[in-house]
C-alpha cells in the first residue's frame, strides 16, 4: 500500500524563536530550520512499515516555498521514495493546509496518511483531524503504536488518562506522538543520494482551493517574564522559605 507523509519545515526545536522587530511575525531568516520532529517520526513509521513489507511506496509532501524543499530532501534521505512540493508563499492555517492535503490525497490515493500530531511552531495540532474529516475517513491521533492488520490500522493513542487503542478501516489518517519510534539518523551519503530522487512541484494556486486565513494574528509578544528567584543554600533553608510563603 501507498503511504502519504505530510511534513512541515519549522524553526529547529533547539532554537529560541525571536519576534521580528516590527512584530509582523517570528524571524525565520538565517535561523536553523528543520523538519518538524513529529513529522520525522511519521516518516520513520512509514519506513518501518515498508521494511515490514506492508507499505510499498512512501510519498512525502510539504507545502511551502523555496527552502521548504529541504525537509523533503530530508525525508528522501531517510528513505521516502518520492516527494511533492505544493508551492505556496501564503501563510496557511490548518484548515487550508488540510484542504490542500486533501487534493494531494485525491491524486495519490494512499491507504495511509501519516502526519505529526502537531507542529512545534503554531502548536495547533489540527491538520490530521481536519484532513480525516474532509476525506470522511477514520483518524488515529497521538499514536504511540501502529499496526496494520488486514484492512485495519490498529492505533494505540496517548491520552490524558493513559492510552487507548482504536481500530480504523483503511484508508485512515494517523498522527504521531513522540513515543511511536525514534527516527533514524540521516547519513551524509543518503543525503547525497536523495538529491537524485524526484521532487514534483504543484502550484497551490492551481488547485483552486480557498486558502484565505480565518484567523488574524494581530499581535505577537514575549510572554511576561517570571520575577527573578533566589538560590538557597540548603534543604533546611528551602523548607524555611517555603513555609514562610505558605507553600507547604
Amino acid at each position: 500500500m501507498k503511504a502519504l507523509v505530510a511534513i512541515k519545515r519549522v524553526i529547529d526545536h533547539n532554537i529560541r524563536p525571536r519576534i521580528k522587530p516590527d512584530g509582523s511575525g517570528v524571524e525565520t531568516e538565517n535561523v536553523k530550520m528543520s523538519i518538524n520532529p513529529f513529522d520525522e517520526i511519521a516518516v520513520e513509521e512509514a519506513l518501518r512499515l515498508k521494511t515490514q513489507g506492508i507499505v510499498t511506496e512512501i510519498v512525502a509532501v510539504t507545502i511551502g516555498h523555496g527552502h521548504a524543499q529541504d525537509v523533503l530532501r530530508h525525508a528522501l534521505a531517510m528513505g521516502a521514495d518520492r516527494a511533492i512540493l505544493v508551492d505556496s508563499t501564503a501563510q496557511l492555517q490548518p484548515l487550508a493546509v488540510s484542504k490542500i492535503l486533501k487534493a494531494v490525497y485525491e491524486r495519490e490515493q494512499p491507504q495511509l496518511v501519516l502526519l505529526g500530531k502537531q507542529a512545534i511552531d503554531d502548536d495547533a495540532g489540527q491538520v490530521g483531524q481536519m484532513l480525516a474529516a474532509l476525506l470522511d475517513i477514520g483518524q488515529g491521533t497521538f499514536a504511540s503504536k501502529l499496526e496494520i492488520s488486514g484492512n485495519e490500522a490498529i492505533v494505540t493513542r496517548e491520552v490524558d488518562t493513559g492510552s487507548e487503542t482504536v481500530a480504523l478501516q483503511l484508508p485512515a489518517v494517523i498522527t504521531t506522538d513522540l513515543r511511536l519510534n525514534e527516527p533514524r539518523f540521516v547519513k551524509l551519503p543518503n543525503l547525497m543520494m536523495a538529491k537524485k530522487k524526484p521532487i514534483e512541484t504543484i502550484q497551490a494556486t492551481d488547485l483552486g482551493i480557498d486558502t484565505a486565513p480565518h484567523l488574524k494574528v494581530t499581535n505577537l509578544a514575549e510572554p511576561p517574564a517570571r520575577k527573578p528567584g533566589i538560590k538557597v543554600n540548603s534543604v533546611a533553608e528551602l523548607v524555611e522559605k517555603l513555609r514562610s510563603v505558605g507553600a507547604i
Binding site: P94, G125, Q126, Q129, F142, V159
Partner: peptide, 23 residues
C-alpha cells in the same frame, strides 16, 4: 485543550468549514 477535545473539535470544525483557536 485536553486529548479528548483535541481529537474531536478540529474534526468537527473542518466539517463546519471553520477554524479552531487552540490552547
Amino acid at each position: 485543550h485536553t486529548t479528548f477535545a483535541k481529537n474531536i473539535l478540529p474534526r468537527a470544525a473542518a466539517l463546519l468549514d471553520v477554524a479552531v483557536v487552540a490552547d
